[in-house]
Amino acid sequence: MDAILETPALLLDEARMQRNIARMQGRMDQLGVAFRPHVKTSKCLEVARRQLAAGARGITVSTLKEAEEFFGAGIDDILYAVAIVPNKLNHALKLIRAGLRLTLLVESSAMAQQLAAHGAEHGVCYEALIEIDTDGHRSGVKPDDPVLLEIAAALNGGAHLKGVMTHAGASYDLNTPEALAAMAEQERARCVAAATRLRAAGHACPVVSVGSTPTALSAAHLEDVTEVRAGVYVFFDMVMVDVGVCRVDEVAISVLCTVIGHQQDKGWIITDGGWMAMSRDLGHDHHGYGMVCDADGQPLPELGFGKANQEHGVLQWRGAPDVSVAQRYPVGTSLRVLPNHACATAAQHGQYHVIPQNGGDWQVWPRFSGW
C-alpha cells in the first residue's frame, strides 16, 4: 500500500473487478442475450472500457451528464434509463445531433406526446423504450395497464417505439436463491408480456430489456429477452453480499481510512472516514456504515461501524472487554471499509486509487459526478 496516500481514499481492486466483469459477461453469453452494463456504478471510463472489452454491447446511464461524458470518450450506443422530462429534451437533442445513438425512456402518454412533438419540431425521431413495472418497486407501467397502448400510439412522427424496459429493484430485498430465481422469472415474464401485448396491437417492439444484478445472476433462462442491464456487479457491495449473489472477498471497492483517536471507556476507535466518505446509505443495516477490514482487506468482525459524523467514523469494539483499543489500533493505523452501496459510496469520491491486478505502481482513475 502506498504509505503517503492521504485518507479517506476510495480503493479499487482491479483483479476482483475483472473477475466480476468476466463472471457477468460469461453468464449473459451463456443465456444468449446482449449485455448493456449500467455505468452509473463506476462513472469511470476506464471501468466501462473493460466492460466493453469483455463483450458488452453499449452502455446504460442514469444521467445525461454520463451520456455526454461517455460519448465524448467514443462510446456511441447509450440507453438513458430514467424517464425523460421536458427540461432535458434539448440536452438529448444536442447529443443525438452530435451523432450519439441515444435511447430514451418514457412511462406516460403525456411525455410520449411531448417527446414526439419535440422531435417533429426539431427534425429528429427519438428512439424510446416504455418503462414496465414488473415488481411494484419503483416506476413504470404495468404490463396490462391500458395506458401502455396509449403511450405506444403517442410515439409517432418525432418519436419511435423501440421496445420495453424493466428493472426488478425489489430483488435487492431478497436473500435466497429460490426467491431470486422467482423474481428473475417474474421480471422476464412480465416484461415479455408487455412486449407481446404491444405487438398484438400492431406495434413493433424489437427490444425487451430487463435487469438488475441479482436477477441477472439468478435467471434460469431469458427466453424472448433481447438484452440485460446490471451495474453494481462490477464492484459488488455488502447489500449484494446480504442478497447472496457474491462473497465478501468479491467486493472490489473499499474506503481506506486512518485511526485518528480513541474513546477507551466506550470502546470507540475514531477514524477520518465518516459518512462523507462512506455515504449515509445503511443498506440492510446489518453492517452499520460498512464492513470494517484491516489494511489488507481482511474483515475485522470485532469492529462495528454503527456511528458516523461528517468526517469522523466511530468504530465500536465488540471483542473481549479488557482489550485496549488504543494499543491494538493506535493512531495512524490504516483500515478499510467495504461499502453497503457501491454506487453511493463511489459517488462521494472523485477518483479511484487502483490496486493493479498484475502488480506494479498504483494507478489513479478519475470518475465524475453531477447531472
Results as ranks from 00 to 15, higher is better:
1 M>Y: 12
5 L>N: 08
10 L>F: 06
11 L>P: 06
16 R>E: 06
21 I>E: 01
22 A>T: 12
33 V>Q: 01
42 S>V: 14
43 K>G: 12
50 R>A: 10
52 L>D: 07
55 G>V: 02
58 G>I: 08
65 K>F: 15
68 E>C: 08
68 E>K: 11
83 A>T: 11
87 N>K: 07
97 R>S: 15
102 L>W: 08
104 L>W: 06
104 L>V: 13
107 E>N: 02
111 M>R: 11
112 A>I: 04
116 A>Q: 04
117 A>C: 04
119 G>V: 07
125 C>P: 01
129 L>Y: 08
135 D>N: 12
138 R>S: 02
143 P>D: 09
147 V>W: 00
151 I>M: 08
154 A>W: 02
154 A>L: 09
163 G>I: 02
168 A>V: 04
171 S>W: 04
173 D>V: 13
192 V>I: 08
197 R>D: 00
199 R>K: 14
204 A>P: 04
208 V>W: 01
216 A>E: 03
224 D>H: 14
226 T>A: 06
226 T>H: 06
231 G>C: 10
234 V>P: 02
247 R>S: 12
249 D>L: 00
258 T>Q: 09
264 Q>H: 13
265 D>M: 13
267 G>K: 05
268 W>I: 10
269 I>L: 12
271 T>I: 11
271 T>S: 10
273 G>Q: 07
278 M>Y: 08
279 S>M: 04
281 D>E: 14
285 D>I: 14
293 C>M: 03
293 C>N: 07
294 D>G: 12
299 P>A: 15
304 G>N: 02
309 N>P: 03
320 A>G: 08
328 R>P: 04
330 P>M: 00
333 T>K: 04
337 V>Q: 02
340 N>Q: 02
346 A>T: 00
367 R>F: 14
